[in-house]
Design a protein around this nucleic acid. Sequence first.
RNA 1: GGAGAGGUGGCAGAGCGGUUGAAUGCGGCGGUCUUGAAAACCGCUUUACCUGUAAGGGUAACGGGGGUUCGAAUCCCUCCCUCUCCGCCA
Length: 425
Amino acid sequence: MLETAYLRTKPEEARARLAKRNLDADALLSKAAALDEHRRSTQNVLDAKLAEMNDQSRTIGELMKAGKKDEAEAAKQRTSELKDRIAELKDELTEAERALHEHLCTIPNVPQDRVPPGKTPEDNVTVAQHGELPQLPESAKPHWDLGEEYGLFSLEQGVKLTGAGFPVYTGQGAKLQRALIAFFLDRAIEAGYVEVMPPLMVNAESAFATGQLPDKEGQMYHATADDLFLIPTAEVPITNLFRNEILELAELPVKRVGHTPCFRREAGSYGKDVRGLNRVHQFDKVEIVRVEAPENSNAALEEMTKHVQGLLNALELPWRQLLLCGGDMGFTSAITYDMEVYAGAQKRWLEVSSISNFETYQSNRLKLRYRGEDKKARLAHTLNGSALALARIVAALLENNQDAHGIRIPKALQPYTGFDRIVKK
RNA sequence: GGAGAGGUGGCAGAGCGGUUGAAUGCGGCGGUCUUGAAAACCGCUUUACCUGUAAGGGUAACGGGGGUUCGAAUCCCUCCCUCUCCGCCA
């Protein structure tokens, strides 16, 4: 959620940046300004009445102490009107706060200057690319065929157990999952991230603080009996670790990494996008999360991107880095890079990582602050990125490395898999 | 799941209807003293919002929400959480 202080002090900047998202920035912001103004004036009046009431109460207390019962009683009578007015104003303020808050929740984060304008993925900008695209023979198979052929994973079995989009991994396929997770975790730990194993379910408060609620409610599985949500990403529990915290400057930067399964309903998805492992309801992901002082957050974003590039290079996967345009960026992000790998048999790019700087948008909801040089508490910046999402990495790995004798495992991964090829049983 | 106890500032721990945003101790910060340090002594030490150029002033917060009252950390209701005992269990 955007800060009202920002909207008040830099309305022009907010308007210009928001416009890149291809929405009616003027309408959103002028409504926010009106609601904010109303909230403040209501509080002003209420505060004055409360001060008056406090004064009265103090006087009555003194009269009671002095034994002047009659005078005290008389003073009590006089407070009833004030009391009613205060109750009225309190309701008004609560409503004004609710309305402002609700409206602020509908305004996405303001994109940074360098974010390109645009509406669709077509307008994203490729800022880096690396690796040769694999030249596979016509007989090359997409990963869903390879998965069946080598007995690595089965979507059909998942249907039996759960439903569509819940793969069952078996044998070398299961080991490959475990190897990738361990590899990603180890690399992050080497890079200074502290490993976290969080709960896989969160309460509504946590889901709200990182922005999954209310914007993406339909995306999460909801256990209604206990009002808990299955996490769509480790970002949610890990970032919420810092909810309502004030960090000392020396504690920054906070660097956390966690592996979790991720659960996504993916309501409304269809078509070739969802074939095989391209889009599933449950997948494993290693996520890196950072809390930074504002002046360091953009450097941190680049560092995280380099880290992800290093992983992809180690896996020998051709990748490209996209700078998302305003229209394609996530609701809560100020700038996002997407990392895509090329899946040679499908002949298409698959998104395997999304790295974002949320600036204060999340921390404002989280009430995540840090104490600066001047000892004043102010909102920290939060960032996160996938490093990396498994299912699609597996898809690309299988497709690109297939040959007549099986599927080659990249060298960096072999210590983790314990085998250098996937072969038919 | 059942029974009981309890949730107060960074921590420990008072307060149980009237200048109590909150005693006291510890910790932390600043100062005096000292060649330096320790000890001792003195002062400071929460956060959010509103108002103001600022200094300052105002309001709110004692697990969350609601109620009683002129006035609530203190009384009542409710939810959540922690601890102890019992039950169940990987």
